[in-house]
């Protein structure tokens, strides 16, 4: 499992690198965070169809003449909530592993279920965020920012979803007569390793994408 996670590091590393490479090249809204640009440039971009009408609504005249201020698209308080949810799921995972290793099946089952639910809530946040961004004019084809953002967070979301499935199958299997077989601790621990990894990747993504300003 550790070796597999090494492989995954390279996977997300490449995606984050792509994002960082393109991050410097965003010169039209939607921007990740609040940005000032020349109004004339903005209007020209709308006129030539380079950005959509919707995206230009993120911007308005600033106090300085000829300069517009564009709202950042990231809603940091909201994403902080979802990050908190994911962090809590890791805590739940720790408790589930504890339960499995100390032969307390009810505890394990409960916390597995809790981890799964928290994962699903995180995914819910992500779906909501994607929808909002879409309405505000950020899509795959809007800009390099849109493309690399959606591909990166989308693949992270897929990893969370796969994690939920893994936990789900463990949970289902634990209801069998034989339970999780002779080594429940090992199986749950391996799943936990994966879950924590996905969690840590999200912390990195959250820091690099959301918290470090453009």
């Amino acid at each position: 499992m550790w070796i597999f996670l090494g492989s995954e590091c390279l996977f997300f590393g490449s995606l984050i690198a792509t994002y960082l490479i393109f991050k410097g090249e965003i010169d039209l809204p939607p921007f990740p965070s609040e940005t000032f640009i020349e109004t004339a440039y903005l209007e020209e971009a709308v006129a030539s169809g380079e950005i959509t009408e919707v995206a230009s609504h993120l911007c308005h005249e600033s106090s300085e003449a000829g300069i517009s201020v564009c709202e950042g698209i990231f809603d940091i308080p909201l994403t902080s909530q979802s990050t908190f949810v994911l962090l809590m799921s890791s805590v739940a995972m720790v408790l589930a592993v504890y339960g499995a290793q100390h032969n307390r099946p009810m505890m394990m089952k409960f916390w597995l279920l809790a981890t799964m639910l928290l994962g699903v809530i995180f995914l819910g946040y992500q779906v909501y965020e994607f929808r909002t961004f879409g309405q505000e004019g950020l899509t795959l084809e809007t800009s390099q920012f849109g493309a690399s953002f959606f591909v990166l967070t989308g693949f992270h979301g897929t990893h969370v979803a796969v994690g939920v499935l893994i936990l789900g199958s463990l949970l289902l299997a634990s209801f069998r007569r034989r339970g999780l077989g002779s080594e429940p601790g090992f199986q749950v621990e391996t799943a936990g390793l994966y879950w924590h990894f996905v969690d840590i990747v999200w912390i990195v993504i959250f820091t690099v994408l959301y918290l470090i300003p453009a």
Binding site: G6, L10, S14, L140, Q144, S148, V151
Partner: peptide, 23 residues
């Protein structure tokens, strides 16, 4: 360690070809 890098490149190429991104 090498395959995930190719996979990312291929995913981005797939998105370019099928889903209008332009990585």
């Amino acid at each position: 360690l090498a395959l995930p890098v190719l996979t990312v490149a291929l995913i981005q190429m797939l998105f370019d070809r099928q889903f209008t991104t332009s990585f």
